[in-house]
Amino acid sequence: MELGQIFAVLGTAASTTETGLSLGQIYAILGAATAVVLAGLGSVFGVAIAGQSAAGVVTEDPDKFGQVLLLQALPGTQGIYGLLIGFIIMNKLNIFGGMIDVSPETGLLLFVSALPIAIVGLISAIYQGRTSAAAIGIIAKRPEELGKAITFPVVVETYAVLALLASFLMVNGIPV
């Protein structure tokens, strides 16, 4: 089938599919899933990178557990942000109490709104993990400098927060 035909078919099936889901709902749920999955994966990579550094420090000096744990946890926030946006989208669809129908345009808008936190979350979490790993190196040598060490990964966090804000404002602003 050609692209045009696909769109034609999709257009006629716009209100409801065979399973009873509308195309708009599918788009919206896809958006929620993307935010949760991509931002979550970023956090998985990020905390794993920082966690290996943390484990190395604790092997030699178990007393530093508290400080390095804090640094390891930082790249975990992106996953939470992704879940937050995913949750708001799900809430808009009233997914927990019998879904409401949305038009394909609205569904697509919700999907696009999820992209900032999905993509920025994925990438920033990985790089934040690397920055955290380097910051854990500071703790290894100078445990008293936790404040300075934590600043570097927090700078990376800024951009995840900005993406969260963008996604949040967009999702909120879309009338359902």
Partner: peptide
């Protein structure tokens, strides 16, 4: 067995450097 990753190895060395 510790994971032979760079992050892990370098972190252990950082402590030992002190």
């Amino acid at each position: 067995m510790p994971q032979p990753s760079y992050e892990y190895g370098v972190a252990r060395v950082r402590v030992l450097e002190t």
